[in-house]
Design a protein around this nucleic acid. Sequence first.
DNA 1: CTTTTATGAATGAAGG
DNA 2: CCTTCATTCATAAAAG
Lengths: 232, 232
Amino acid sequence: MMDPQQIPTSLQPHENGNGNGIINGGIEANGNNNNNSSNNGGTINRVLYVKVMTDEQLEILRTQIAVYATICEQLVEMHKAITAQQDLAGVRLGNLYCDPMVTAVGHKITARQRWTPTPVQLQILERIFDQGTGTPSKQKIKEITAELSQHGQISETNVYNWFQNRRARSKRKQLNNNSQNNAESEVETDVESPKDKKTKPEDFQSQPNSMMGADDSCFQNQEISSSMHTID
Amino acid sequence: MMDPQQIPTSLQPHENGNGNGIINGGIEANGNNNNNSSNNGGTINRVLYVKVMTDEQLEILRTQIAVYATICEQLVEMHKAITAQQDLAGVRLGNLYCDPMVTAVGHKITARQRWTPTPVQLQILERIFDQGTGTPSKQKIKEITAELSQHGQISETNVYNWFQNRRARSKRKQLNNNSQNNAESEVETDVESPKDKKTKPEDFQSQPNSMMGADDSCFQNQEISSSMHTID
DNA sequence: CTTTTATGAATGAAGG
DNA sequence: CCTTCATTCATAAAAG
């Protein structure tokens, strides 16, 4: 298993450890860094100035690796920035984790254990919800649960509750908006006090379609898995 | 320079476009895919079966790229997981894009504002709260909102939330104080006196540990900046 | 300016 | 379904 903490060492784009600095070193130079190649007396077997890659290809290769390095760096940066800002105290980044407090001094053994949908799950749920089928139905719930369980721990109850809440709250907001509109004839519009507090711009969440277009396949969320892709 | 938007195509670890499939194709095979290399008359210039990299080096190269690919994928995942919920939620709830500060520097991308009660409003709310009625009820909410709106912008939701929070926090404070007082000597049997229903000892939802499923990488979406490092 | 606290808002779950 | 509660999140306000 690859630990992200130690990977960067060998990945640093600026790093140039000779052990790994293949690209930098001498592919293009030409093939004199092969150990033995065809070395036999009699025929032409000298090491020749032969290219196995075109310059173009070589350049692409370089670029590829450089790009990976850069993206990694930037992602790490983003990740740092985000986590630093939003969560100072918690380690709850990944998801829920087993409760930390098993009480040495012991009271309140209970910790939080309420389900929190992963982003992927949420997307799927939203999609289903928007699909109009207002009736989850028992059977449907099972199916959905089955699907979602591939993206994280979940139970049918969770799904049921989610739809229940989703609908209720959606409805309530609608109502809120409507009543707000209706009653909005007498109150003067721009009541600007020195301290404009701008009441919550309650949503208009009709079609959350626009965003989230290009996200399809996010699977394993936080496991730095061991499975490496082999290039071939 | 390379544009990150188009890079991914060539980065897909599963991708095998022949145009870029350098590694895949034929480094090790041998150098007959060079276009012309050193082509001079007189000396030996046939294409030979020459290795420019040792197998070991080749393997390292592969691994390197694979590692980058994997890490990038996973970082993207993490990033998504972290940002998806809040940013999505934010957008869904109707953030205003008309915020004056947005345009300038781009610092405050999302300016979620929250209602802050004016002193007068707060006073009134507190008074009502102390009057005992723990249950605001919808009708009551409307009235209160109407009254408060004379002293500043406010919505029913604000009032509703305020009471919810007020009650919850009042309650919790009580509970904390109580348990603090008599929990010193009693390590066990922490049965709260009042109406404590003790958070449920219900089912145990552990971690979203194993998630496999199709390994389908998603790269195509990102806001990664454009500056790229060149390796040399 | 950075860190801490107070609190408005969002949401999973339970009760009826 | 609807309402209510408990917990959590994010941010305005306060403290350093």
